[in-house]
Simulated scan of single mutants.
Amino acid sequence: MIPALTPDGWDEIAPARTVWLITLADLALLLIGFFALLQANRAIDRATLLEGMRAGFGIEAPAIPDPMAVGRARIDGFAPGSTRADMRAAIDWARGVARDPRIRITVSGSTDPHGDVDAETGSAAILAADRARFVAVALVADGAVSPDRLTLEVAPGSRRAVTLSVGFAGESQIQSGDTP
């Protein structure tokens, strides 16, 4: 092809391909990739797909996060050095919030920082653990919560109490044919 001179003196060279054709080809490839990803998502479960994508990019699997806290209750009334308290209100509260199978309860035992210790060992941490265990046993024995949905923690040195933290721990457990 011989270049032609334009009125301003510049050579005009016709492009070898039209520009819109290249853009159309890019769009078509993106659409094919999108539909391939949709099909792959149906063929395998989501966890396997995410694991494969993480492996492809060299990313380690994330640790399981703690349940997102959505509510709290506190049991006060522990005498210094004692693991016993009135549990009636806490059991009713736990029974109400534990109806949803996605809920987990963290039981945190604590002690007063001023001489609130276990009588036999002199340890505030052991007394806090005993208080958390007392509350957990009462919740399970009364049928308010199943033991696999409880987590125990110890926080000595804050107050003579046990704190119940309700956490949302995942997706819905209701299957397609079930009713809530």
Rank of each mutant, 00 (worst) to 15 (best):
T6E: 00
T6M: 03
P7H: 00
P7S: 02
P7G: 01
W10M: 00
E12Y: 05
I13W: 05
P15K: 09
A16K: 06
A16Q: 12
A16G: 04
R17Q: 10
R17D: 07
W20R: 14
W20A: 13
W20C: 05
W20E: 13
I22P: 00
T23H: 09
L24R: 12
A25Y: 02
L27G: 12
L30G: 12
L30C: 10
I32G: 07
F35R: 13
A36G: 06
A36H: 05
L38I: 15
A43F: 15
I44G: 11
I44Q: 15
I44K: 15
D45E: 12
R46V: 05
A47C: 02
A47E: 15
T48Y: 01
L50N: 11
E51L: 08
E51W: 03
A55W: 08
G56C: 04
I59R: 12
E60L: 13
P62L: 06
A63C: 02
A63G: 10
P65I: 07
D66H: 05
D66K: 08
P67C: 09
M68H: 06
M68T: 11
V70A: 06
G71P: 07
G71R: 02
A73R: 10
I75C: 01
I75K: 01
I75H: 00
I75V: 14
D76E: 09
D76H: 07
F78E: 03
F78R: 03
F78I: 07
A79E: 12
G81S: 06
S82K: 00
R84V: 03
D86L: 01
R88S: 07
A89M: 02
A90W: 02
I91T: 05
I91V: 15
D92W: 00
D92R: 10
W93Q: 02
R99T: 11
R99F: 09
P101W: 10
R102I: 07
I103G: 05
I105L: 15
I105T: 11
I105P: 05
V107P: 09
S108R: 13
G109R: 07
S110V: 04
P113F: 10
D116M: 08
A119D: 13
A119E: 13
A119Y: 02
A124V: 04
I126G: 04
L127D: 04
A128Y: 14
A129I: 01
A129Q: 14
D130G: 11
D130A: 14
R131I: 08
A132I: 08
A132E: 10
R133E: 15
F134C: 03
F134E: 01
V135G: 03
V135Q: 03
A136M: 08
A136E: 02
A136C: 03
A138L: 00
L139Y: 03
L139C: 06
V140H: 02
A141H: 06
A144D: 04
A144S: 06
A144C: 09
V145I: 15
S146L: 08
D148C: 10
R149E: 09
L152F: 01
E153G: 12
V154P: 04
V154I: 15
V154D: 08
A155Y: 02
A155R: 14
G157A: 13
S158E: 15
R159G: 11
R159T: 10
A161P: 00
V162M: 09
V162C: 07
T163H: 00
L164C: 06
V166H: 07
A169G: 08
G170E: 12
Q173K: 14
Q173I: 05
I174W: 13
I174C: 11
Q175S: 13
D178K: 06
